[in-house]
Simulated scan of single mutants.
Amino acid sequence: MLPPVELEVRHLRALCAIADAGSVRKAALQLGMTQPSLTTQLRRIEGAIGGLLFTRGQTGSRPTPLGHSVLSRARPIVAEMTALVTAARDAAVGAGGARLRVGSVGSRVVTGWLRRIHDRLPDTDITIHIEVSANTLLQLLATNQLDVALVHETAGFPLHIPAEVRRRVLVEREPRFVTLSAGHPAAASPAVTLTELADDSWIVDPTADHEWAALRRVLTAAGLDPRLLHVRDNTTAADLVASGEAVRPCQPTAEATPGTVIRPLAGDPLTAELSLAARPCALPLPELDALFDDLADAYEEATSRSVAYRTWLTGAGRPAPPDGRTSGPGP
Rank of each mutant, 00 (worst) to 15 (best):
N135P: 02
R101C: 09
A83F: 08
L121R: 10
R108Y: 11
A74G: 09
V102L: 11
L84P: 00
L100W: 06
P162R: 06
T111W: 04
V148D: 02
G112F: 02
V102W: 02
E153P: 10
T143Q: 12
E153I: 04
S107Y: 07
G60C: 11
G156M: 06
A83K: 07
P122R: 07
T124R: 03
T136Y: 04
G97V: 10
D90A: 09
R176W: 12
R115A: 15
V93N: 10
E153L: 09
A149L: 07
D125Y: 07
E131W: 02
G112M: 05
H68M: 14
S107V: 13
T143H: 12
E80Q: 15
Q139H: 02
L114A: 06
S69A: 15
L121K: 00
P122W: 13
N135H: 03
R176M: 14
D125E: 12
T143F: 07
D147V: 00
R62K: 14
H68E: 15
S104H: 00
A95N: 03
G67I: 03
D119F: 01
L138V: 02
R167G: 10
I130K: 03
D147I: 00
D90Y: 02
T82C: 12
A149K: 08
G97T: 13
L138D: 04
F177E: 08
V93G: 03
G103V: 01
A149D: 13
H160L: 11
G112D: 06
G67R: 13
V85M: 12
G112S: 12
A83E: 15
D125N: 12
L137S: 10
V165K: 07
A87N: 13
R89M: 10
G103T: 01
L150M: 11
A142W: 00
L140K: 14
A134E: 03
R89T: 06
T64I: 03
G156A: 08
Q145H: 10
A92M: 10
A79G: 09
A79F: 12
D125P: 00
T64N: 07
D123C: 01
L114W: 08
D147L: 02
A88E: 14
R116Q: 05
I117G: 05
V132H: 08
L146A: 10
L146F: 09
E80A: 15
T111L: 12
V102A: 12
S72Q: 15
S104F: 00
L141Y: 08
E172Q: 07
I117N: 03
L114D: 09
L100S: 07
A92F: 03
L140T: 04
T136I: 01
V178M: 06
L137V: 09
F157D: 06
H118T: 06
Q139P: 00
V85C: 11
L150K: 01
M81S: 02
A83R: 13
P76W: 06
P122S: 10
T86R: 14
I126R: 01
D147P: 05
A98V: 05
G106F: 05
E174H: 01
